[in-house]
Design a protein around this nucleic acid. Sequence first.
DNA 1: AAAAAGTACTAAAACGGTTTAGTTTTTTTA
DNA 2: TAAAAAAACTAAACCGTTTTAGTACTTTTT
Lengths: 341, 341
Amino acid sequence: MSSTVTLGDLALTLGVSKTLISLVLNNKGTTYGISQATQKKVFKLAKKLNYQPNLVARGLREGKTNTVGLVVSDIANPFYSKMARHIEDFLSAKDYHLVICSTDEEPEREHKIIKLMREKQFDGIIVSTSQRKTGDFKQLMREKYPFVLIDRKIKSIKTNFIGINNFQATYQAVKYLIGEGYSQIAAMAVSPVYVSSIKERIKGYRHAMADSGFDLTQQRLVEIPFDKVKTAVKTEIQKLIQSPHPVNALFAINNNIAVACLEAFRELQIALPKDIAFIAFDDIDAFRLTTPTVTAIDQPLEEICQHAVDILLNEIARPRRAKKEIILSPSLIIRQSVKKL
Amino acid sequence: MSSTVTLGDLALTLGVSKTLISLVLNNKGTTYGISQATQKKVFKLAKKLNYQPNLVARGLREGKTNTVGLVVSDIANPFYSKMARHIEDFLSAKDYHLVICSTDEEPEREHKIIKLMREKQFDGIIVSTSQRKTGDFKQLMREKYPFVLIDRKIKSIKTNFIGINNFQATYQAVKYLIGEGYSQIAAMAVSPVYVSSIKERIKGYRHAMADSGFDLTQQRLVEIPFDKVKTAVKTEIQKLIQSPHPVNALFAINNNIAVACLEAFRELQIALPKDIAFIAFDDIDAFRLTTPTVTAIDQPLEEICQHAVDILLNEIARPRRAKKEIILSPSLIIRQSVKKL
DNA sequence: AAAAAGTACTAAAACGGTTTAGTTTTTTTA
DNA sequence: TAAAAAAACTAAACCGTTTTAGTACTTTTT
C-alpha cells in the first residue's frame, strides 16, 4: 500500500540483525547488552526513516491486539454513544483501542459481528446483546474468550454482567405516578421485548400497577417496532388518548421511544403535564431543555462502564476468573412532566 | 489466550497440507482442482472443530486489515455519533470495520491516534481534525496512505475533503436574523477557533454583519473553551444580556454550545424568542422538542459520509488518485426561536 | 595458562495464514 | 507405447515482528 520501512530495512542499512533493532527500539537494548553507540545509531536511523512498527505483525506474534470490541444496537443512540465515550476513555488509559459496531437489534447481525471480532483477535468484547439465543456466549465461554455483558443480561448462563435494577427503577417510577394520583397509566415498550432490560421494565410496570390494585385489564402496554419508532408511536398515542378510558400518564421505556413521544405530543397538540403525565427511562440532554422538563430515570453510565472495563481487562490479563455480576441502582430524576392530580 | 484451532491443526488431523485447507475454506478448492470428496471432509472438520480464521495473520500476509479509522473530537456528540453510524453502515456494506477515536480537541492526542491507526495498518482513515499543524497529513500523503478529511479542512495542502459551506450557511443565518429586524446579534464560538469550520462560521458572521452596516464595534463574538462549555456559556450570556447594549439575538456556532445556551436561558429565565432570538449550527433531535423549537442549520450528514466512504474506499483500492474536494450546502431550518421584530 | 565471566551481538524459529511454483499420479492423445 | 495433459495435491516462501538459544570475542579470575 504505502512506502513502509520495516525492522529488516533498518537492520540491513545498519548491517546488524533484526533482533538487535527490535531489542533497541523496545528499550531492551541496555538489558541485552547492546552498546550505547549502536543504540544511538538505531534510534537515529529509525527516526530518520520514520520507522513505524507494524502492529499487525506484533499482534500475530504476541497473540494480542490491544483492541476491545463494543457491540450495541445503535451507536447513534445517545445512551450508547455516551457509554462508548466512557469506555473509550477508560480503555485508552490502559492503551487499548475500542471498536464499536451497531446491530440494529438484529440477532443475526450481532452474531456476525461477534464472530468477526473474535476472528480479528480482539482481546475481549463488551456486548449489549439483542440475542435471545445463548449460543454465541456459550461458545465464547467454552473458548475462555473474555467478554462482559452490559445493559442486557441473559439468564441461563452465568457471565460477567454490569447493569442496573430495571425492575425496581420502573416499579418506583410507576408507583410515583400512582402516588401523584394517576390511574390510567400506559407503558410504551420497544421491540424486541425479549431483551432483559425491556422485559424487566415491563415487569416493573405490571407489578407496580397490580400492587396498586390495577389488574391486567387496566394495564396498557404498547409495543413499538424498533425500526419504525416514529410513526408507530404517534398512531399508538392517538389510540391511547381516544380510547374509552383515555390514558392520563405514559411511561416511555427508553430514550428512543421517549423522544418519539415528545415529538408526537407536539404534533398532536397534547400538553404536558396537563393532558398527560410523562416519565422516560434513560436521561438525555433534551429532557432538561423541553417545556416542561421531563422526569426520567437516570442510569449511572460512567460507573457501569468503569466496572465493565475493569472486569474485562482483568479477565484479559488472567483468564479463568469467577464471573462477576454487578447491579447498580439508577435514580428517578423528578422534573416537571408529572404534576400532582 | 483461548483454545484456538488453526489451519495447521485441520491439516494435521486430515493428513493434508495447509495449502489445501486454505484453498478449500476460501472456496478456491474447485478452481485449484481439489476433489469434491476432500473438500467435503475439510468443510466438515472445520465446522466440527469450529475453526475460525485468524484475521490478524491474514492481515499480515495480505497487507490489508479491512479496517478504517474515524477520528473525531467526541463520539458522544450527536453530530459525530450520527456520522459514525452512517459511516459504519456504508463501510460494513463493503466488509469494512470502523474504529472510532475521540480526541477532545487535543492536537497531541489526535497525532497519537493517527500514528496508532497507521501502525495498526488500518487501510485508511477519516478525520475531522483538531490540528492546525499539517505535519501528520503531509506525512500520510508522502506515504500515499489513504485518508479523507471531513467537516474540517486544512488549507495549505490539497487533500480529500468533504464538508459544507460554513461561511455561506452562517452568512445566510445571520442575514436572516437581520432581516427579521435584529441588530444586537452575538455569536458564540467554541475553541479551538482555528479549526476551519469554526473559522468560516465566524467569518460568515462577521461578513453578514459588516455587509449590513454593523461594524466591528457592533459585533459581539464570544469564545467558549471546549472543556468548560457549560459554565462559561452561562456567564457569557449573562454578560451579553447585561451589557449597555443588550444582545437580542444569539447565534450558537455548534450543537454543543447551543445546548448549553438553551440550558442557560432556562436557568436565567430568558424566554425565547421574546427576550432573545436564537439560531444554532447543527441540527439535533432536541431542537424539535423545545418550546419554542429551535431554528438551526442542518448539515447533510448522510451525504457527507457517503462521499467520504466512497472516496476513501476508492483510494484504498487504487492509490495515487487525484484528491477530491466536495463542498455541500446545508439548509437553514426555520422554526420558532426567531420571531419577526 | 586454562577456566570462567562478561560483552556485544545474531541465526532461526515462531505466530497463522496465503500464494507460488512445483510434484506425483493417473488419464488421454498421437 | 511414449508423450502430453489433466487431476489432485504439497513444500516452502512470505508477511514483520519477538524471542530463544546461541556465538564469538575479550576480559577477568584462579
